[in-house]
Design a protein around this nucleic acid. Structure first.
Lengths: 199, 199
DNA sequence: TCCATACTAGAATCCTGATTCCAGAAAACG
DNA sequence: CGTTTTCTGGAATCAGGATTCTAGTATGGA
């Protein structure tokens, strides 16, 4: 019972994506999104309570897609290979999804999750936790036990370094060049490999 | 001839800084800045053509202050020591100026410079160039000649890695812990040290 | 002292874009 | 078929804040 929808949630999220890619994050007005989707603004509001929530949902969807191959790679039984594969997975995904990758830079996790406890859906609270827990498992597999220091090292090597490598390029609207991947791997391995140093 | 000013440009920039630190970047309205400085809004507009320009100028001032110790450190005649000192300079500055450090995350160079060719002052166009040129000099001193590959490596080691190390913490409103400094140094040295690897 | 100049004041205005609202329209189901 | 429910359409409203405007006011110099 009830009419069949002409537009789905994802239609609008994809529209936001296209508008963002074409004209930049600043130009994402509700009217522009509606026009891009070929819908009236009312239909946008029928599905998303507010503009902010619309953008937040796109971000959550994107992060989840981004994380998936990373988490899979990291679960490799061999820690060394897992780390390499995880770092490479980041670059591969960004190369294959340049528009979505740009969305990653749009928000900060903390801002969003602080503002919508549950409107974003239960899994979104888990976004942090999914990676955090994977990093803990990885640390345990690699180091035997999970100390804060070891965890910090692992997080920097596997999250912050790859992110830094792509961030600059994405911000400039470029696809990260192949050369940066090797550099990031070098940095990442060095951080994972050394028990100490850097005094 | 003419009345003596009660407020200087820097008074308002400092007010923006305090408002940003206290209530977050989102709450920086012109009215709030004026109130913080104890001035009427008109006085703000007497000195800054627009709100955007006000924020942009704070960013430029902050970046310049941030860069200064970095550039000094990098100019060390010994390349190895220069790199270490430069990385350490970043952490030292952030620890000493937490509020200003948060401002660094507020904009992207490209956005600002694209929008105000000259309103930001001639030196602001040089912001990029100051660091770029220092990195070229450093690359020459270290590697003999300046290839794109070597430059990319140097830039990642000395700019992107330290930035990544502080970014996460600043975004969360924390001062970066001491532990991350050693980790960043490890990563940075590894990238500078290796002629290749990371295949 | 008086003028010229540049600054302070802050209320009033304007703009942009989010949000609301309600009258249809279209399907599912008996 | 009629009923029910959900969706579409888009004009009208609202809100928040940037910006403007017109008086005053303080200071330096003749």
């Amino acid at each position: 019972m009830g009419r069949k929808p002409r537009f789905t949630d994802d239609d609008f999220l994809d529209a936001v994506l296209r508008v963002t890619a074409r004209t930049g994050a600043g130009a994402v007005t509700v009217a522009a999104v509606a026009a891009e989707a070929g819908a009236p603004v009312g239909s946008v509001y029928h599905r998303f309570a507010s503009r902010d929530l619309l953008l937040a949902r796109l971000w959550v969807r994107t992060v989840r897609r981004f994380q998936q191959p990373f988490l899979t790679a990291l679960a490799d039984p061999d820690p060394d290979r897992g780390a390499d594969r995880a770092v490479r997975a980041v670059f591969a995904w960004v190369r294959e999804h340049p528009d979505e990758a740009a969305v990653l830079l749009l928000h900060r996790r903390e801002d969003l999750i602080a503002r919508w406890p549950e409107e974003l859906g239960p899994e979104s609270t888990t976004l942090n936790e999914a990676v955090a827990s994977a990093l803990r498992s990885y640390t345990r597999a690699r180091c035997g036990r999970v100390t804060p220091a070891a965890l910090e090292r692992v997080a920097f090597a596997l999250v912050d370094i790859p992110y830094a490598a792509i961030r600059t390029h994405l911000a400039a609207g470029r696809t990260p060049p192949a050369s940066i991947e090797g550099i990031a791997l070098t940095a990442s391995r060095a951080v994972l490999g050394s028990g100490s140093s850097g005094g």
